[in-house]
Design a protein around this nucleic acid. Structure first.
Lengths: 219, 219
DNA sequence: CAATTTTGTTAGATAGTTCTAACTTTTTAC
DNA sequence: GTAAAAAGTTAGAACTATCTAACAAAATTG
């Protein structure tokens, strides 16, 4: 069984892996907010425990067991976030830090019960997919709002970034998942976009914001 | 802030303290399932951090800060147990191990929300009092069923032991908190008691069981 | 391609929590 | 009131997760 620290490394590795499934030591050190020697010794431990493959001066690669373990921690995290929002009344901007702790609880029944109570949700409050009990994650590919064209009708489905500040920004504009947006125009100078809500006035969104909004095109 | 290990020591110390508030090193070692040298070094740490008073070869005594810290961990434990039973449908025999982990979560809002959702409960599913936000614990003094006399009418209010096995025994007899029992007789040979339930046949309970049932006398 | 920068490794140290072995103090019991 | 038992302490070690300093390899860049 992975320690809490190991679980956090696995989670980061899972989230950072590129197409080749590789992650550099320095990237991981930055992500984990520890020094490179710390990562160096930890990847040796993780390799010893079978979670990843590591060779001197090479990027690390998760094994399939490592990926599964990581996905199961992410499952606990995302189920918890969903539970906190749907069953306990928290805002989507409040749940990350709490879930960051609860994801390390070893109590299968507890997470099973959450899952049942919510009717087996497939995404968390930020639209990220919840891996299944076997650690399989169903990838959905949304477009960023930036990639959409003027005139398109889209539904806000997920976020590429879920920082508290961004979530609070979205709250202030009443931009929540499921919101239908019509793209009125795109400013070629700064890539900002003007969108209208179903029943509201129109709103201008900066490129930075548009890059972080994942949408499903519906018309 | 106390570490998870420190919190566990404080909790045990709080629960084990006698009238004088004293706990021996060997008792604590047994309770915590570690060696005496481990306890010795940990009580030095706990003293350094202001949680208790310790002198060589003397029993240890919690400071008021130590008591408060312990009570707040116990509060989180008991609120969690109550939440698991009342809001998530767990049985009272299933919740201890889960609460044992969740009690170490640092997220005041999370426990506040549980407390609110349950309408500020004062006891946990086993009848133990839930300390308030300031760590104050309201002591109630029930009698054990053993101490009661033939003919008395009592209500099951709490337990002196909440082991899974005992709770499963109580489940098998449909003995839950709030149950009204009439004491029909007491066997002087082995101190076993015959009680009748409101709407059931009578049942014989051994001394061991009667010692572990805390009741409120109602008639 | 050689110099510099970036990335990664090794060595050695620290802090927390635990252990065993050996020793000391306190308590118990004849 | 001494001898044995129980309780407690010290010393020294291990393991996990971290650090800094120093060095080495790989990548970048003029």
């Amino acid at each position: 069984m992975a320690s809490q620290t190991e679980e956090n490394y696995l989670k980061s590795l899972f989230n950072m892996a590129n197409e080749a499934g590789e992650v550099n030591i320095s990237e991981l050190a930055q992500q984990m907010q520890v020094s490179m020697p710390t990562v160096n010794s930890m990847v040796k431990t993780l390799q010893k425990n079978g979670w990843l493959i590591y060779e001197k001066y090479k990027p690390v690669i998760l094994t399939s067991e490592g990926k599964k373990e990581a996905a199961l921690v992410i499952r606990k995290h995302r189920l918890t976030e969903m539970f906190l929002v749907n069953k306990m009344g928290f805002g989507w901007e409040e749940v990350h830090e709490i879930a960051e702790q609860i994801e390390h609880i070893h109590a299968p029944k507890f997470f099973e019960r959450m899952d049942e109570m919510m009717g087996h949700p497939t995404v968390d409050p930020h639209g990220s997919p919840i891996p299944d009990k076997l650690g399989r994650i169903q990838e959905v590919n949304y477009s960023t709002l930036s990639q959409c064209k003027t005139g398109q009708l889209v539904v806000l489905a997920a976020l590429t970034n879920s920082s508290t500040e961004f979530l609070e920004f979205l709250n202030s504009r009443e931009l929540n998942l499921g919101k239908e947006l019509k793209i009125l125009s795109k400013e070629s100078y700064d890539q900002s976009m003007v969108v209208s809500f179903k029943d509201h006035a129109s709103e201008t969104l900066s490129e930075k914001v548009c890059d972080r909004l994942l949408v499903r095109v519906v018309g």
